[in-house]
Simulated scan of single mutants.
Amino acid sequence: MRHFEEGAKSMYAMFLNNKGRVMYDTLVYKWKDDDSYLLECDSSVINAIQKHLKMFKLRRQLDIKDVNDEIKLWALISPNVPDIVDNTLEIYKDPRLNDLGSRIISSVSVNETKITDIIGSDITIVNDDNGYKYLRYKLGVSEGADDLPPGTSFPLEANCDYLHGVSFHKGCYIGQELTARVHHTGVVRKRLMPLKFTADVKDSIQKDCPITFANNTKTSVGKLKGTTQNYGLGLLRIKEAMDAKILKVGDYEAEVIKPSWWPIEAPREVTAKKEQN
């Protein structure tokens, strides 16, 4: 949270359970008042995350409330943040990736026409989640309870470390021990990665469907988390998936793509030698 004291307006974060697994992912925004913060989360877990926060506030004088009926959330898919002064909305740069653009948070009174007037007439408003979900899956970015069912995923498997969502220097937090241990050993064998199908997925593929080698369907390299059009998101064993030319997901074939935004990691042998020196 000290990032806000240094001028940050938004932050990516995850709430973990005591076993180090992700309960909820969130975007945190510095809100209008000096002592206020707005948490964006999956609408299906609003009550659960409120209960979670209230359980840990102890004797702090904190007011935690649901403002879902008071505001609207818009995703602006553009690498540029428009410089706009308007008291009916707030614009925040997505803290995860530039390619994810910005969030516009407006009052419920703001409609599509006003958004177009404020932002510019050259924008196109899409009223469903498919365009944004397609962008996320193409990039390999998870979001919400559908991609990260509470209590099932580890933060580093969800690329939280690559998306500026975890600090390895801060004090103790719930789930820290396992998260820090995995990070410092340098071994994260599975991560969420984009899958590009050879054709649009028109038939529903069951969630957590095994992802296998095309030439050996008995050997699983991961599980499917979701699909949209010709892209999917899978939790995959990185080395095996990258070595495979073609993967099989249900009745479809796909190739795994290593996201361009992933950092280039030094081989463990090189890192070990540097530490010895």
Rank of each mutant, 00 (worst) to 15 (best):
M1S: 09
R2E: 09
L16P: 01
N18L: 08
T26D: 00
L27M: 13
K30A: 12
D34Y: 06
D35A: 10
S36Y: 01
S44R: 14
S44K: 13
N47F: 01
R60V: 09
K65E: 12
K72F: 06
A75F: 11
N80C: 05
V81A: 14
D83L: 14
N98I: 14
N98S: 14
D99S: 12
S109H: 05
D117G: 01
G120N: 02
V126S: 09
N127I: 09
N130M: 12
S142Q: 06
D146Y: 07
D147I: 00
G151L: 05
S153H: 01
L156D: 05
Y162P: 00
H164C: 02
F168W: 03
H169D: 15
G175V: 04
Q176V: 04
V187C: 08
V187Q: 14
V188L: 12
L195I: 10
D200R: 11
D203M: 07
P210F: 02
F213E: 05
A214Y: 02
A214T: 02
T219Q: 14
K225M: 12
T227M: 06
L235I: 11
A241E: 06
M242W: 01
K245I: 09
G250Q: 08
G250Y: 06
E255S: 15
I257D: 04
S260R: 14
E265Y: 15
R268G: 01
V270P: 00
